[in-house]
Design a binder for these strands. Structure first.
Lengths: 195, 195
DNA sequence: TTTATTTCTTAACACAGGTCAAGTACTTCA
DNA sequence: TGAAGTACTTGACCTGTGTTAAGAAATAAA
């Protein structure tokens, strides 16, 4: 009863851990499929993040709004990536974030209880997430490093080089926020680059 | 044959996962004990980070030196915490970082091969690290958020409040670098605070 | 189409934090 | 105890990025 959508997850799990046919079906049966339309929210502040989401096809962002009403973007995620507010998901306490679809998006999701159950049923899935978090942690440290000690122009150029696809799918305002600067600053940087 | 040093690790593992007596001894036998003197390096750039370290008692920092010769501190870690260059550890490629003892420090360590072996022997240890990385990831996102969108004075005051102990054990220069500012700026912030 | 809305750019000005340089106070160790 | 090194502070000046405000360009809606 597996669909191509869910099989994409299996493909990515298998990149990192060995799983049996039984494991596969246990994993697949734990997820639900769904879609969300562009500009709709998967999560809003105050709500508990009840699911962890795997984007099959589409694009989403996580952001929050500060005291002054300014949006700050934490994540921009595309096809074959996980998204969610892990803090709220694991603690099951209210979130501070919005998760919004930037395109019509197809995803699969798993609830906290079902995930905990799955960790027990399929130890390899525990390992898969260990590896996933390990990589996410290292990547976030790199991003922290860049934000603390590299000028914005370098961060922008690195992004251009490593994620050129993003610029096709996401407005520059969002990329600016993700890089930790204002749209005006990004504009100046781009001007400087074209010379 | 367990020593009090290794039992501290077991105590912390048990906070997060259930392990049997057999698991305990499997874990303990995978670690080696050692000590390092103040100002000595556990790792220097170019070297592969062959071990992951658990600090039993003491204090260490991870830092790198940029093109201009300026030190940038990534981590300050104390008793009952893990330290290492995960990127180098997992890839077994040369590190860019120094790991230095800031006090005479007692630690236990585990090699990559031994850890991989242990993950197979004791699935609960896989889970323990999954939970550890999950928390480390969320914490690093918070630190990223603060560095991108909170002024240095707030970051300093948060640190004062949440880790007052650090100020007893680590020079302000290091705390400044960890916060992403210069010692001069930290000095001005402290002056402003005393009014 | 035309209109409305969103995205992007530009300019003038402000400010946090960096840089450079000097001086003071605190540690460490002979 | 004194000398040398390290840690911390202060001041003058500089720079990158934020802020505010306006307009141009692109996109979506009617």
């Amino acid at each position: 009863m597996t669909t191509p959508e869910e099989n994409k997850l299996i493909y990515y799990v298998k990149k990192w851990v060995n799983i049996t046919k039984d494991d596969e079906s246990a994993i697949l049966s734990a997820f639900e499929q769904a879609t969300i339309r562009k500009k709709k929210d998967l999560l809003v502040p105050g709500e508990i993040c009840k699911y962890n989401y795997f984007i099959v096809k589409g694009c989403m962002r996580t952001y929050y709004i500060d005291d002054k009403g300014v949006e700050h973007i934490y994540h921009l995620r595309f096809d074959n990536n996980w998204i969610g507010d892990l803090e709220s998901f694991f603690s099951q306490k209210p979130s501070k974030y919005y998760i919004e679809a930037l395109e019509d998006t197809q995803y699969i999701r798993i609830s906290k209880d079902r995930l905990d159950q799955l960790y027990d049923e399929v130890p390899a899935f525990d390992r898969y997430f260990r590896i996933l978090f390990q990589k996410a942690y290292v990547n976030t440290l790199k991003r922290l490093n860049a934000n603390m000690w590299e000028p914005a122009i370098d961060r922008y150029n690195d992004m251009l080089k490593e994620h050129p696809d993003m610029f096709q799918r996401v407005p520059l305002t969002y990329i600016a926020s993700y890089l930790g600067i204002t749209p005006e600053s990004l504009s100046r940087i781009r001007k400087k680059n074209n010379r």
